[in-house]
Design a protein around this nucleic acid. Structure first.
Lengths: 110, 110
DNA sequence: AAGTTATATATGCTGGCAGTTATATTAGCG
DNA sequence: CGCTAATATAACTGCCAGCATATATAACTT
């Protein structure tokens, strides 16, 4: 099994996720929008499914895939310490403190 | 040339970036911390350099590499529309509005 | 039940990536 | 100037990812 990073590194797979942002789609629809064979798309969907990033729903012969963004939180978390490095330096400390406050609130909410 | 996504998908390269978070390091230091041959590490550094994620500074025979996180902003931006999907739904709209306000402020600052 | 539609899996090919060892390069040192 | 140290590049190898074609599976249609 691949990490979320590797799964999302593939351009076509990112494209698929972007398409699913607007709502669920059948495999055929995706094939039409990506210039690629149906098996290739099904394979990418398999990888995305194994990573927990998409989930299929049966509708007659079609499989409608919907997005599940939760695994992407891992990427976001890895990015966290870098974020304040590319942001303006002066307000980075304030931003950091804001984020920590957010974290605490989130923990309280659970 | 690889995209920032692909560059960062490689676990060893992420590890290198993580190590550089605490400050610049010589190649030899990195080799010591990663269980890997020196040429392998130099190769990863080449990829990271080409991606603009690290930059070397000469110190006698050694090359000290420092982090440059700016290219990671592209990853962060791609992540943006997904972020509110894994966040709690109820406050996601407010969060979205906050982010848009931040964007405006950032534009003003430029 | 046979035919059709929609998707998944099998198979084979190919290119590129990450690792190794060997060698080149560059800088300091006696 | 020869020698050592530190890093980069070259050459080779094994492997895996992504693609296409061919085939299997599943569901609907008549």
């Amino acid at each position: 099994m691949q990490s979320t990073f590797e799964v999302v590194a593939e351009p076509t797979r990112r494209r698929i996720l972007d398409l699913l942002l607007t709502g669920e789609r059948a495999v055929g629809d995706l094939v039409a929008e990506l210039a690629m064979s149906q098996p290739a798309v099904s394979r990418h969907l398999r990888v995305l499914r194994d990573a927990g990033l998409v989930a299929p729903r049966t509708d007659a012969q079609r499989r409608l895939y919907r997005l599940d963004a939760r695994p992407l939180a891992a990427v976001d978390e890895w990015l966290e310490p870098y974020r304040r490095l590319w942001a303006g330096r002066l307000d980075s400390l304030a931003q950091h403190l804001d984020e920590m406050t957010d974290d605490l609130e989130r923990k309280d909410a659970r």
